[in-house]
Amino acid sequence: MGRKEEILNKIQILITNHFSTSEAAFAFFDKNGDGKLTKNEIKDLLKEAEINGFLRGIVSSKLIDVYDKDGDELIDWEEFKFAINEISDESK
């Protein structure tokens, strides 16, 4: 399993095992309740998914680069949902 697949798998396991829905996971990590995940909030998600500390900054930046469709450098619910669906598809 490559590094990317391993990280995506850990995120999938976190969301599946600890939250009833992906929306509940999003709400949990959206600490300020603004409907968007900041880079630091994404790092918190990655920490909970047991992603190595060194990699969290790199991975959070990459996730924003890939999934931030409106260019605000944040991940909103629709972008998060798209990412989770893609992660779910890749883990099959």
Rank of each mutant, 00 (worst) to 15 (best):
E78M: 15
R3F: 13
D68Q: 08
G53H: 12
L37P: 00
D44E: 10
K39E: 08
G2I: 14
R3W: 14
I7P: 02
I58G: 06
I64D: 00
E86I: 10
E6R: 11
A24D: 11
V66I: 14
K39T: 12
M1F: 15
F28W: 11
S88C: 08
I42V: 06
E50Q: 14
K81P: 03
E79T: 06
D89K: 09
I15P: 01
K43W: 05
L14Q: 06
T38L: 05
K39G: 07
N17M: 12
L8F: 04
E48H: 15
K36M: 12
G53I: 12
L55F: 10
T21P: 03
L45W: 02
G71S: 09
D65V: 03
K69D: 12
A27I: 09
N9T: 08
I75M: 03
L14P: 02
A25D: 03
L63H: 04
S91W: 11
F19L: 06
K31I: 12
A25K: 00
F29N: 01
F26S: 00
F26L: 03
G57L: 03
H18R: 12
E73M: 15
N85I: 08
M1H: 14
D89F: 08
G53Y: 14
K10R: 07
E6M: 14
I84Y: 00
F54I: 11
R3N: 13
I13G: 10
I51Y: 01
S61N: 13
K31A: 04
I7Y: 11
E6K: 05
H18L: 11
A83D: 02
I11P: 01
L37I: 04
I13L: 10
N40H: 13
D68I: 01
I58D: 11
I75V: 05
L8W: 02
L63C: 08
F19P: 07
N52M: 12
L14E: 03
E6V: 09
K92V: 07
L14W: 05
E5I: 15
K92D: 08
S60K: 03
I64A: 04
D76T: 09
E73P: 02
F28M: 11
D89V: 06
E23Q: 15
D68L: 01
A83G: 10
D68T: 04
D70R: 02
K4A: 11
Q12F: 15
F26W: 00
A24P: 08
D89S: 08
E23G: 14
S22K: 12
N9D: 06
D68K: 00
I11S: 00
Q12I: 13
N32Y: 03
